[in-house]
Amino acid sequence: MEDVQEHIVIRGFGAILPLGIDEAGIAHAYNSGIPAFKTIQHQNQPTPVAALPPGAELELERLINSNPEYRQLDRSVLMAIYAARQACQQAGWLTENGMQQDDLAVNIGSSRGATGLFEQYFQAFQQEQLSASSSPTTTLGNLSSWVAHAVNAGGAQISHSITCSTALMAIANGIAWLKSGMAERFLAGGTEAPLTDFTIAQMKAIGIYSKLHDHPYPCQPFGAARQNTFVLGEGAGILALEKVTAVELQPGDVIVEAVGLGFEPITSKTGISTEGLNFQKSMRQAIRQLPQQDQSIDLIITHTPGTRSGDKAELAAINAVFGGQTPALSTNKWLVGHTLGASGALSLQYALILLRYQQLQFPKYPLLVVDQYPTSLRRIMINAAGFGGNAASLLLRIIQ
């Protein structure tokens, strides 16, 4: 008997980011092309950041007021809970009776984890006033466990960090669990709340942080500014994933066709080679999973965080893989900055919006890598990479 073809379909997506909290509003923000940056004073220097807007802050405050225990949690955990509940609401997975759903597993990651609470508790430690809550509220496993409580998930609860590839790695893990039958439904994604004194200082110490605080585009991927223009942003993005047969798919469904992973030896502080070998490996591995007769890609949403060496390496890798047939390229970081462990999930949401709305009014970003954009989109690749030489490439396709 011939095997039944199965697919991983996105049943819901939840997000909270500098562009907003709901898909329609975020789609409008993408089309408007207005960057979500503001300038703060950090170490007596004007510093651009991408923070949540007032409406999103209000939603987080409502979330905190809904459960007294939430007041002890780090901002990264709160954003993950908000996005996860939104994803489950879309998927129809929220249960109001409090019954645990043992077939629902969770994998939420973060590059930095509870940075806000870490800094707060370290200051208390120096003053010999450390709270008993310090360890349980800063452990990385706290991410998925609190999300699981919030959505009554009784399956596996996994938290991890693989720097800025974290969200796509979580999705890869979810796909593996679903395909193996170890879970029937899966929540996967990333969250990051890095707008803290120490985290911003770390990025400045590497020498990559943008000095263009008074420029309309303080973050300029693809090397438009001929200098490092990395800007930190905050947010969370969570997917609700499910395995279905081909006959169960409906027009408009979006499936995760493939996830490729790449790794290369560390040759610098950040693990970036000039050829982007990690990206080359991840993209090629993802493409190999497509049907041989149908491997066309309409658009690549690049990682490109605005660092000269990193952006150049990724573009070199894309050229090596695709040669003279490079797909159109786009990115959302010139609008929302780099959200570290959440960035892959938020790039994926950008891809979902493009696939669902098919409104390709690409904003007039200062530097276009290609002159022509497709008139319609069927398949999009999303890239992510992180310190340590890792990379991930994910392929989405809309059912037509």
Rank of each mutant, 00 (worst) to 15 (best):
M1D: 02
G20Q: 00
I21P: 04
A27S: 15
S32D: 01
K38Q: 08
K38T: 11
T39E: 03
I40R: 08
H42N: 05
P48S: 15
L52V: 12
P54L: 09
L60R: 01
E69W: 04
Y70F: 01
L73I: 00
D74R: 09
I81F: 13
A84G: 00
Q86H: 01
A87T: 08
Q90R: 14
G92K: 11
E96F: 13
Q101N: 04
L104F: 05
A105P: 03
G113K: 05
A114W: 03
G116F: 01
E119R: 00
A124M: 05
A124H: 08
L130H: 09
A132G: 12
S135N: 04
S135I: 15
P136D: 05
T137Y: 01
N142K: 06
S144L: 09
V151H: 01
G155L: 03
Q157T: 13
I158F: 09
S159M: 13
A167V: 01
A170S: 15
I171N: 07
A172D: 15
I175H: 01
A188F: 09
P194C: 06
T196Q: 08
I200S: 04
M203A: 06
M203H: 15
K211D: 14
D214M: 06
Y217N: 06
Q220C: 14
F222S: 02
G223C: 11
G223K: 07
A225T: 14
Q227M: 05
E234A: 06
G235Y: 08
G235D: 03
A236I: 00
I238S: 12
L241G: 04
E248Q: 11
V254S: 02
V259R: 06
L261G: 02
E264Y: 08
K269E: 09
L277E: 14
N278G: 15
Q280A: 12
K281Q: 15
R284D: 11
Q292I: 12
D294N: 14
T302S: 14
L335R: 13
V336K: 01
G337W: 00
H338N: 06
L340R: 11
L348G: 08
Q361L: 10
V369P: 10
N383K: 05
Q400C: 04
Q400D: 07
